[in-house]
Design a protein around this nucleic acid. Structure first.
Lengths: 225, 225
DNA sequence: TCAAAAGTGTTGTTTCTACACCCATGG
DNA sequence: CCATGGGTGTAGAAACAACACTTTTGA
């Protein structure tokens, strides 16, 4: 699917829709992880009012489409990725949140591996940004991002979902770096390993890091049970 | 506002709205507490498809109305209560969830004191039901209820919101009964009191229970700081 | 042999759980 | 004086935080 075409379709829809009905959109906070930093995928806003500002990826929900399906569609369209973790976070519907009229948006976040070979950003205007560097975004998207980061920070100890941000096989050091990036804090190595191992989330793949200038670490993957 | 009139207005709106646009509603899970049981306010469904089934209280969101405002409106209209705790929980939009067409619903739960003098159920069809006794509800409302109960069970330890279910002044025994009803479990009295007192949620009002056939307990209220 | 990170265990502190007795009141 | 629930403390267990040394590898 051609993303440029889709953008204008979406814009068209926003502009044409009935002044007397409510539009429903999904916005996806697509998280990635690279260079020890939590990233988020953003696009240059295509609205005049927010010219040159970055915004989250979203689209209007079609009338014959589930909410979850709509956010999978946005994700697939923007990243080429299938089979990705998605979680609904909040729904926002302030009257003035969209300049084109009344748009209620259902917010999801998702976690993708930036190194995934299937990942193809199909638009020059779509880029990864370090979450920590973001000061403002178009619409209420900065607020949305903040809420999603907060949610992610609690999820991190409840389920192994964040491992979707890493390659299939990873070392405990990489995992700890990821946790530290998301939480914006330092963790004790021994306590971290103890805690993670008690969760029983990981499966030893019996391989080691390669080409590292020091003793290689063991590799793990998300356990299947 | 006349509730019967509003019901038919809402129904009218469902029936009349554009086949090609999405309707947005709010559904409120209004919790109460009475006779040591967690209750929820339900109404007889006014749709043919769900004749004689109970459903949650909700309404379509107006185009010039915030989501929060819409759920406050539903709450005020059904209970007469103002200034009540409301929390958004989830948004559901399965294609077939409403027989009249595509309706996406934003779910809130709220906590009211059944003994509040301002509480006036303005409709014969609106009644309190014990949460534990509910097997089925119209639409996907049983699922919605389950999600809200689960949310409430985690909130209970994170914030003092559940005290909205009790009268202004209450004893620790009443509070513990409430916790036990919500969690569907027994709690140790001494450990419960220790835990609650560490939270610093309560303020001693220097009064005691009256007319109890045993040593009266101290009364507390939600602390202002 | 050096540098860099991997791997690992113990101790003290805090939090959690289980548990029993005396007290104040009304009938 | 009896029945009923109010009020309280402690000891053992579990979870958590702080902390340092040896090992493996590549350069």
């Amino acid at each position: 699917m051609d993303s440029v075409k889709q953008i204008s379709l979406a814009q068209h829809a926003y502009e044409k829709r009935d002044r007397f009905s409510i539009a429903v959109s999904v916005d996806c906070v697509i998280f990635g992880y690279e260079d020890n930093e939590l990233k988020v995928l953003l696009i240059k806003s295509d609205l005049e009012e927010y010219e040159q500002q970055w915004s989250l990826l979203g689209d209007l929900v079609q009338i014959d489409e589930n909410l979850d399906d709509a956010s999978y569609r946005v994700l697939k369209w923007r990243t080429g990725l299938d089979d990705v973790y998605l979680e609904q976070v909040i729904t926002l519907g302030e009257l003035d949140r969209h300049p084109a009229g009344r748009v209620i948006t259902v917010v999801y976040y998702s976690l993708v591996n930036i190194q995934d070979h299937q990942l193809r950003l199909k638009d020059n205007e779509v880029h990864w940004h370090s979450v920590n560097d973001i000061q403002t975004l178009a619409f209420d998207h900065k607020h949305i991002l903040d809420v999603c980061v907060e949610k992610l920070r609690t999820r991190i100890w409840e389920s192994p979902v964040v491992m979707n941000l890493l390659p299939e096989k990873f070392s405990l050091r990489e995992l700890q770096n990821l946790y530290e990036a998301i939480l914006n804090t330092q963790l004790d190595r021994r306590n971290f390993r103890k805690k993670i191992s008690l969760m029983n989330w990981l499966e030893d793949v019996d391989e080691y890091e390669q080409d590292v200038p020091h003793r290689p670490g063991k590799l793990y993957r998300l356990s299947s049970h």
